[in-house]
Design a protein around this nucleic acid. Structure first.
Length: 434
RNA sequence: GGAGCAGUACUCAAGAGGCUGAAGAGGCUCCCCUGCUAAGGGAGUAGAUCGGGUUAAACUGGUGCGAGGGUUCAAAUCCCUCCUGCUCCGCCA
């Protein structure tokens, strides 16, 4: 949610900034609605004041046994006016709120406009893997090595579902453990959150109302108390302090969580998203940080570094991309993606998306902090970043670290989570090295 | 899932249609006394939010007693719906 005062103070500038991500954009209607809202509110409050005064007067007269009938009649008609204005006001407020809530966040000044095609690669770690043999793609490797059972996944849950089997499950689990332990080492707070959330969570995160059809609803979302399966742990973590006023001394607050992410992904199966690259349920560890406004840029760098270090630790080739305004999700002011090299496809796939949301979600969720000097409260800043999407890391590891004989070298940092396993080999000649 | 009870500020709590602009206690802040602990005395303490006002304050109006509606000139108080907690019953890894 963008601050309406900011919109009114700086309309053209904000319109221009928003047009970087959504094309032509006019805020005239929003400004008009807010003006009208203020006018009605002032009229309403005047009448309310009058009614309060009269009511007191009635109480006094009545205790003296004086006649109150005229005053009651007059006050009653004030009450009727109040009702009609209040109704009008609440309609306008709803309309204004709908319009404001559907605006995306203001992209940072340094972002280029346009969509994905304008993303800039900032950095590459290591080089593309060179093979002196014909490398296999991850689906083939997963099948040969018995790591993923696609057929039975489909049998159990339909298209877009799979089963991690044996060493595949262990590798995935090792990746999760690796990430979790690194975050704990960095002093972040580990949270295991509910996977079924209420509507408010999606709204605060900025995913609703726009994307409310892209999550799985346990109940109908028209039902006020309906719940949905979270599409990312961000949706839960960002809501941790909803409607709270935190003490400045508690900040920053750093949380991470592991959850599967449940997404409909309707109609999005393409060739380069075969297999485990995109599905209806994938594993991800998500970081969320709550900071003072003046510290969110620093926090952004911290989270980006953390995400990158996790990939570096695995020894994988990746690139860092700065997203163009139109490619950032609606709630975010800026987003950098960590993208992993998938040799068989010849492309880089996102495994972490680190974003600064500034006060957009905090406004939606009424998340504030109290300034220790002025005693005043102000909106907090929120940031989020994957650390990391393990379900995409696994295919990258298989493809980048595959050997001529079809085996795959296990990254060193993962071995301790896999009983010392160094190489994943085909079942028939599997050897456990020490 | 069913039944009963409850939800008031940082915490506990009084409150049963107008003198509540929410008593009282604890806590917290400040001051005094004693003196580095403990104890005692005094003062302050609705935070939040939306307006008006101001360079900023001061000042000022509205909202507010779990949430949302309703009744009434007037609601913490009466009525309805919902949410949450506790107790009991049912079900159950």
């Amino acid at each position: 949610m963008i601050d309406i005062k900011r919109i009114k103070a700086d309309k053209e500038k904000i319109e221009k900034a928003l047009s970087k991500r959504m094309g032509e954009c006019s805020l005239d209607e929003i400004v008009r609605l807010d003006d009208e809202k203020l006018k009605l509110q002032q009229a309403l409050e005047k009448l309310q004041q009058l009614r309060n005064i009269n009511s007191k007067k009635i109480a006094r007269l009545k205790s003296n046994n004086e006649d109150i009938s005229d005053l009651v009649l007059e006050t009653k008609s004030i009450g009727e006016k109040i009702n009609s204005i209040a109704n009008l006001l609440s309609t306008i407020k709803l309309e204004l709120n709908d319009k404001l809530a559907s605006l995306p966040n203001i992209p940072d000044d340094d972002l280029v406009s346009g969509g994905k095609e304008n993303n800039q690669v900032l950095y590459q770690f290591l080089k593309k893997t060179q093979f002196d043999f014909l490398p296999k793609d991850h689906v083939e490797l997963e099948k040969n090595l018995g790591l993923i059972d696609y057929d039975r996944g489909v049998k159990l849950a339909g298209q877009g579902s799979w089963i991690y089997t044996n060493e595949g499950a262990r590798l995935e689990w090792a990746l999760l453990n690796y990430c979790i332990n690194e975050h704990i080492k960095d002093g972040w707070n580990f949270m295991l959150v509910p996977h079924m959330l209420n509507y408010e969570c999606g709204y605060v995160a900025g995913q609703f109302p726009k994307f409310q059809e892209e999550v799985y609803w346990i109940d109908n979302f028209n039902d006020k108390n309906g719940k949905f399966l979270l599409p990312t742990a961000e949706t839960a973590l960002v809501n941790l302090h909803r409607n709270e006023i935190l003490d400045e001394s508690e900040l920053p607050k750093k949380y991470f969580s592991y959850t599967p992410c449940y997404r409909r992904e309707a109609g999005s199966s393409r060739k380069e998203e075969r297999g485990i690259i995109r599905g209806h349920q994938f594993n991800k560890i998500e970081m969320v940080q709550f900071t003072l406004p003046e510290e969110s840029d620093k926090a952004f760098e911290e989270m980006l570094t953390k995400a990158e270090n996790l990939v570096k630790g695995l020894g994988l080739h990746y690139q860092l991309s700065k997203l163009a305004a139109g490619d950032c999700s609606a709630s975010m002011c800026r987003t950098y993606d960590v993208e992993i090299w998938i040799p068989s496809m010849g492309i880089y796939k996102e495994i972490s998306s680190v974003s600064n949301c500034r006060d957009y979600q905090a406004r939606r969720g009424n998340i504030k902090y109290k300034n220790s000097i002025t005693g005043k409260s102000n909106y907090i800043n929120t940031l989020n970043g994957s650390g990391l999407a393990t379900s995409r890391l696994l295919p990258a590891i298989l493809e980048q670290f595959q050997q001529l004989d079809g085996s795959v070298i296990v990254p060193e940092v993962l071995r301790k989570y896999m009983g010392g396993l160094e190489v994943i080999e085909s079942k028939k000649k599997k050897v456990l090295k020490k």
